[in-house]
Structure formats: structure tokens, C-alpha cells
């Protein structure tokens, strides 16, 4: 093994300490650290809801499916949403994902520097390993990291929904989320087939309840 078998707690401590010194780094190095965090987290988001490459040679979004994915839907913004509360932890969590990726690659005879360098299939395997751990606080953290890109894609959780739908948010458009009325409010005057579609239960009470 290239990477010594550290406990998750120890890795988290190291990564948190590393994150804490980012503000102390020279500007260029701090910027690189933030970019590294973003690349890892967006690669993770692309594993949850994959999207097409944004440009030729895109190394973060790997194009596993046609159409936009969680990255295009705004996963990075949701990760950093103050109401979500994950922002300060992201450098540490990205470091953990990278560490897991390095370990995984080493176990398969490959040397990488982080999660971004894995293939889509390898990224999926790493994500499955992290998400498949025993129930407990650590697993909940991974679950939260998985939930955010899915929420970014399926709900545009960082945006007002009416605005997002009108602006063609990629995820809501993919779902076929309905457009609101002109005032930004949803109403459906046509909502029912308006005909009896089954016999009701013979022992239904006069007010519609089971007996």
C-alpha cells in the first residue's frame, strides 16, 4: 500500500488542519487548494448525477450520459449554500475523497493524485465504498455529500424554483418540471380525469372511511 492505513478520524483531523491553513497560504497556493477542492467535489457530484462534458478535454465531468448533470445544475453552489452548512468542511471532505481514491487506485496498480484522475467506473466504485459503510455519523456525512448534487439536479435547491424553471435549469428541465403561471405561482385547473375509475370498497362508511 502506498498510503498508510489511517483511521478516518485521523484523516479528518489532518485534512481539517490542512484546510485551516489555506487562508495563511500565499494567494496563488490558496487559490490552487480551493480549485482542487472544487474539482474533487464536482467530480463526486458528476458521479452522483453524471453529465455531458462541458468542453473538450473536461476532466471533471466525464460525459457518462448525454445531457447536463449535477455539475451543470449547480452542485458546487449548493455545497457552499450557507443554509446547507457544509461549506467549511469541504476542503477536509474533498481530501478524504482524494485519499480514498489514491488508496483505491493503488490497490489496482495505478498511481493517481486524486479522485478526478479516476475513470467514471472507478469513481463509482470509490463512491459505493464510502456510501456503503456501516451506519453512523461517518456514513451520514457521505450521505449528505451524495444528497447535495442530487438535490441540485432534482430541485435546484440553491435557487427559487419558479425562477429556475423559467431560466431552464438543467435538472428541472430534465425532469419536465411544470412551468408556473405568469405570477410565478403554480395552479392546475385541469387536474383530474373527472370520472369514476374504480369501484369503491363495499364496506366504506357513509363518510368515505374504512370500516
Amino acid at each position: 500500500m502506498i498510503v498508510p492505513a489511517l483511521s478516518r478520524r485521523r484523516i479528518l483531523q489532518i485534512a481539517t488542519a490542512a484546510a485551516a491553513v489555506i487562508p495563511l497560504l500565499p494567494a496563488e497556493e490558496a487559490q490552487a487548494a480551493i480549485l482542487q477542492t472544487r474539482a474533487t467535489m464536482e467530480a463526486w457530484a458528476d458521479t452522483m448525477v453524471p453529465g455531458e462534458r462541458r468542453y473538450a478535454g473536461d476532466k471533471v465531468v466525464l460525459g457518462a450520459t448525454p445531457g447536463p448533470g449535477a455539475v451543470q445544475a449547480g452542485a458546487w453552489k449548493l455545497y457552499n449554500d450557507p443554509d446547507v452548512g457544509l461549506g467549511p468542511l469541504l476542503p477536509a471532505l474533498a481530501a478524504l475523497i482524494d485519499t480514498e481514491a489514491i488508496t483505491y487506485a493503488a490497490g489496482h496498480g495505478k498511481v493517481v493524485l486524486g479522485f478526478v484522475e479516476l475513470t467514471f467506473k472507478e469513481r463509482t466504485a470509490v463512491a459505493q465504498k464510502l456510501l456503503g459503510g456501516p451506519p453512523g455519523p461517518v456514513q451520514l456525512v457521505w450521505y449528505a455529500l451524495a444528497a447535495m448534487p442530487i438535490l441540485a439536479f432534482h430541485t435546484a435547491g440553491h435557487l427559487d424554483t419558479a425562477t429556475a424553471v423559467r431560466d431552464g435549469h438543467p435538472g428541472l428541465t430534465w425532469l419536465g418540471f411544470p412551468q408556473p403561471d405568469d405570477d410565478g405561482i403554480w395552479r392546475f385547473p385541469d387536474f383530474s380525469y373527472r370520472r369514476a375509475l374504480a369501484r369503491t370498497h363495499p364496506r366504506t362508511t357513509a363518510t368515505g372511511h374504512p370500516a
Partner: peptide
Amino acid sequence: VPYAGGLFAAACRNAGHTCN
């Protein structure tokens, strides 16, 4: 009853069940 409820009711009927 909205469309989704109507669809479920129709599927129940199709399978020999009642639905309210």
C-alpha cells in the same frame, strides 16, 4: 381526485381491486 390518484384507481380496477 387528481390524475395520479385516478391512474392508481384505474390500475386497481384493472387488477380486480377496489379503490376509494
